[in-house]
């Protein structure tokens, strides 16, 4: 991580968006006082991450990317354990975890190691919330999780936000950026941009075109061989194409692709997404 600066507002749902190896986990470990920074300063919930580390530990909840609860304690024992460590009880903060915990309560006597991935995730979140933290750190909570469970997880986060908890969440899924209030795009230890998802997309300065044809592979190779291309990225059923020229005319591209024996050519202007912006910044 190099020279990172940012602020998160109270009750904000703040996303750290970037691929594996970008530095997301390192950042979270520093902010949760598990790792010393080499340089720079940071405060969480008003406390210094080095001097006031004990106070921070009482004020934040942290759900690491890797499942880190006790596998051979039951669901209920894990939750009790974390409540006790923070000098509280399940009953005292039950309201906060109720939504999530009711879904795993039928399995409260099952050992954590025997839970499915989705249930482990819910238990880990319950344990991270049991002491009513001011700030919640979630490190890639949805990696490897299917779209249905991902959607439910984000709905859960929105509800927590209503209960006055500030949430920092990291994810490699660009589409999840749109669900945050603000996001930091991060790659190779550097923040590429910080803004609302809408503003980030607005900053994209080039015109993007959806291009499609009968043979995807030939289309990609032909576009990449086109001397005027700026970027060529597969995007769902289309290829997102940008051109180097400011006076680009799609008809020229159409003629070029025809000359490459491509058929069923379709070219139309489209809007940039967070992912387009990320790739443009990351090059």
């Amino acid at each position: 991580m190099q020279d990172i600066s940012f602020e998160v507002k109270p009750n904000e749902l703040f996303g750290i968006i970037g691929p594996d190896g970008a530095g997301k986990t390192t950042l979270f470990r520093i902010l949760t006082t598990l790792l010393f920074p080499d340089q720079g300063a940071a405060t969480v919930a008003g406390f210094d991450v080095v001097k006031d580390y004990k106070k921070i530990r009482n004020s934040v909840g942290y759900m690491p990317g890797k499942f880190s609860l006790y596998q051979d304690l039951t669901v209920e024992e894990n939750l009790n354990f974390f409540a006790t460590i923070f000098g509280t009880t399940i009953e005292e903060n039950y309201d906060l975890i109720k939504d999530i915990y009711v879904q795993i309560e039928p399995f409260k006597d099952r050992r954590a190691g025997k839970l499915s991935g989705g249930m482990k995730q819910k238990l880990a979140l319950s344990c991270a919330l049991i002491h009513k933290p001011k700030v919640l750190f979630l490190d890639e909570p949805t990696t490897g999780v299917d779209p249905v469970s991902r959607k439910e997880f984000w709905e859960m986060l929105k509800r927590l936000q209503q209960k006055n908890i500030t949430i920092l969440v990291s994810t490699p899924y660009m589409d999840e950026a749109a669900l945050c209030d603000r996001v930091a795009l991060i790659q190779d230890g550097k923040i590429l941009q910080i803004d609302t998802p809408k503003a980030i997309v607005k900053h994209y300065h080039k015109s993007i075109y959806n291009v499609r044809s009968a043979n995807m592979y030939q289309l990609i190779t032909s576009l990449k061989a086109y001397e005027h291309h700026h970027s060529v990225y597969p995007f769902g059923e289309f290829v997102h194409y940008t051109d180097k020229r400011s006076d680009f005319n799609p008809a020229d591209l159409n003629a070029y692709l025809k000359s490459k024996n491509l058929s069923h050519i379709y070219i139309e202007r489209t809007e940039a997404t967070i992912e387009d912006t990320f790739m443009e910044l990351a090059i």
Partner: peptide, 24 residues
């Protein structure tokens, strides 16, 4: 089996270009 989990968006696309090539 989930070959691209966690990979950055550019590499993910390079990966898919390799898939297209193999299929082609």
């Amino acid at each position: 089996d989930e070959p691209t989990g966690g990979v950055d968006p550019i590499t993910r696309r390079q990966f898919w270009e390799m898939i297209y090539k193999a299929a082609n």
